[in-house]
Simulated assay, not measured.
Amino acid sequence: MRTLYLDCFSGISGDMFIGALIDAGGDSTFLEEELQKLNISEEYKLSWKKVVKNGISSTKFDVELSETADHKYASGHQHNHKHEDEDVDHNHEHEHEHSDHHHKHEHSDHHEHSHHHSHRAYQDIVKLIERSQLSQKVKETSLNIFRKIGEAEGLIHGISLEKVHFHEVGAVDSIIDIVGASILINKLEIQKIKSSPVCVGAGKVHIDHGIYPIPAPATLEILKGVPLQQSNIKSELTTPTGAAIVSVLSEEFCTVPSMTVQSVGYGAGTKDFEKHPNVLRVIIGEEA
């Protein structure tokens, strides 16, 4: 049984997950080609590079929004469920939210676009994925992850799933994170996914409605049923997208299973901690 084990000792985000899979041997060229099937390639640019985190060589994956996306989603970013703010200590390794954050501040002069453009609702994302030429398996995995986040957001805000407008998760970079994760898992022929308990961090975080304890409300809602791991790091280590990936895909939460290890990958976060490597470790191998 080909198994993927997620070692979330420094949390998890979509970009860390993709970086780790590429680092473990995932086909980055295939990933780029498959993502073009979403027909939104003019809205983003992908990049990945090797970085060293506290002595560990790892892969940093980024989604850079193009000007097309910047203008198209200016309105959406005025109402975002923000997980970071300049005066809050936040683990900025999570590029899907990190990019959103900078978009909001760098493009504050585009507020006039707010009334002319709409950001993607849950139903828009479902249509985008369903209409693509991606394989049925990739579509199903992606939609399951998005549904998990949509239901959590709906519950937190007291609205139905159909009325959920995705915030940072509706941004192009998060669509890429979630669909990209599904593409790589399918391509790597992973049959089973297991995970360690998930580290979420500590401290407080800024969102639209004020200052909240970590994990933020949507993240915590998504992580229902998932064992959490205590951390003294004052930073948000797990994002809603990362939480949804591990929650939806993991069949079991445990220590490293009995397996013959075939490859190991490290997906890097942006932020550096003094005595803590900010990476997601993945192990791919054969379970008896």
Rank of each mutant, 00 (worst) to 15 (best):
105 H>I: 03
155 L>K: 04
97 E>C: 07
65 L>C: 02
36 Q>L: 10
272 D>N: 15
190 I>E: 12
128 L>T: 11
250 S>I: 06
176 I>M: 07
162 E>W: 06
242 G>W: 04
255 T>W: 11
270 T>C: 13
189 E>S: 12
2 R>P: 10
32 E>N: 12
155 L>R: 01
166 F>A: 00
45 K>E: 09
30 F>T: 03
33 E>K: 14
32 E>D: 10
266 Y>A: 05
168 E>P: 01
212 Y>R: 14
84 E>A: 14
30 F>D: 01
131 R>S: 14
155 L>F: 03
227 P>G: 10
234 K>H: 15
98 H>C: 09
203 G>N: 14
221 E>A: 03
207 I>R: 06
39 N>R: 05
30 F>K: 06
52 V>F: 12
249 L>T: 03
78 Q>D: 04
59 T>H: 13
253 F>I: 07
179 V>F: 06
103 H>K: 10
108 S>V: 14
115 H>N: 11
286 E>G: 06
157 H>W: 00
224 K>Y: 00
153 E>W: 02
265 G>A: 15
110 H>M: 15
5 Y>A: 04
1 M>Q: 13
24 A>E: 13
75 S>Y: 05
80 N>F: 03
49 K>G: 04
49 K>H: 03
170 G>D: 00
95 E>R: 06
98 H>G: 05
25 G>C: 14
10 S>Y: 10
58 S>D: 04
189 E>I: 03
241 T>W: 02
202 A>F: 14
173 D>Q: 01
139 K>S: 03
96 H>G: 03
266 Y>W: 09
288 A>M: 11
157 H>R: 01
271 K>F: 08
